[in-house]
Write a protein that binds this DNA or RNA. Structure first.
Lengths: 217, 217
DNA sequence: TTGGGGTACAGGATTTTTCCTGTTTTTTAA
DNA sequence: TTAAAAAACAGGAAAAATCCTGTACCCCAA
């Protein structure tokens, strides 16, 4: 396969060592050629401007500074719908997977994927337009099937805001002040969340928020 | 440089993609040769048995299943003190750095290191016996200098245990039962921690524990 | 127009958390 | 051995968190 017929590919990841290593690995695949690397979405935007031709495929990390994977995939689907985006993460989290898929990613895989599987995934994306592992597929089914058990709890805007504020050393009264609501309303939010999430006290709230990436440390 | 004079190196990391990619990268360095990869400490032990010669250098990830970086570096310094160990992590955390150094690691770097710096680090470890980046050096100075500000709070064994149990939906009374102590003793632990850590309630405890990696989610 | 659903909020009670000041027992060190 | 320090524990009380029931208001659809 001549170079001109290789698929072009870009890597967006802030872990320089990983990105560079991955580049070496992918360049050993005869079908692919890494044309540039970027450390985050913004750097990727610049790179795209500097290249006359956009890559066929972008491997996109999710946890990045400046412009993270979610924002970046949104921008890409809006401005370069032709580019296939494969999301890449260390975290096996349903919400994250769904967020990326909804954002337009054509596939998602964990960084502990086997190199052979990576190659397969890359080829399948270019060939069929998508690559969804079993894990991702089952996640999507879970999310879309209203029948089965759905741990997908929907939080109202205010509930989320309250939850985030509750994950601090503030007292509920102080939270009420910040949110400009009566402490009794806050009381209601708390109770509602306890019921919805099946937890029994404030520590449970904090743990839930952390596990579901509703707050950052 | 002929192959026989290359330094031999092993990679221990559960992220297959990263490990394989890193192998490719390192094999482009003329001075090094990757002899095996393992996904965690236990697999590494097996690999060491299967090879007549042990590698000169081991790149060791910290977050791994089965047998993590801390355990592994301890085992290596005890059983193969001749092997240089370089720790490798995504997390820039002082406590983690210190724990690995104390365990016997000859160096520590983040996965966002530049490939050129990696090469420099590898060479320096083989040449001088250690590689400590500025970040690591300053961390060590911080830890050893009793003069300056030391956020290094020492927790007693029981305090730590209590702290970990407090990061759950258990009530303090239940924690007391688990620890076989009077609730009033628990009361004392809590108060002591509040003072030591400068926090004001249980949520503060949870956040502190998380930030300092005293508990896992 | 009417009734249901969602939201904000209250009263009031109970439990848990938080705080402060002491006593007793165990450990440690001179 | 003995005094000091640390650890375990208590009483008592204020503050915060938790829980339950009930009301008022608004929006929307039948």
């Amino acid at each position: 396969m001549s170079d001109s017929k290789k698929y072009t590919l870009a890597i967006v990841d802030d872990h320089l060592l990983f990105a560079s290593s991955l580049e070496k690995l992918i360049n050993t695949f005869p079908e692919f050629n890494v044309v540039f690397k970027a450390r985050h979405g913004q750097e990727m935007q610049n790179e795209l401007k500097n290249h006359t031709e956009v890559p066929d495929l972008i491997l996109l990390d999710i946890n990045m500074p400046v412009m993270n994977g979610f924002e970046t995939v949104g921008w890409l689907t809006a401005n370069h719908p032709g580019i296939k985006v494969l999301a890449l993460s260390v975290e096996d989290n349903e919400n994250i997977i769904l967020k990326m898929i909804r954002g337009g990613a054509k596939g998602y895989f964990l960084k502990d994927i086997h190199p052979d599987d990576l190659k397969f995934a890359l080829l399948q994306v270019m060939d069929k337009g998508y690559y969804y592992s079993e894990r991702v597929t089952s996640t999507m089914v879970n999310a879309l099937q209203p029948g089965g058990k759905e741990p997908m709890v929907k939080l109202r805007e205010n509930e989320l805001k309250f939850l985030q504020l509750a994950c601090s050393e503030m007292t509920y009264k102080e939270v009420a002040d910040v949110m400009n609501l009566s402490p009794k309303t806050i009381d209601g939010y708390r109770q509602e969340l306890f019921n919805k999430l099946g937890i029994k006290n404030r520590v449970g709230l904090v743990l839930y928020a952390l596990k579901n990436h509703l707050i950052e440390l």
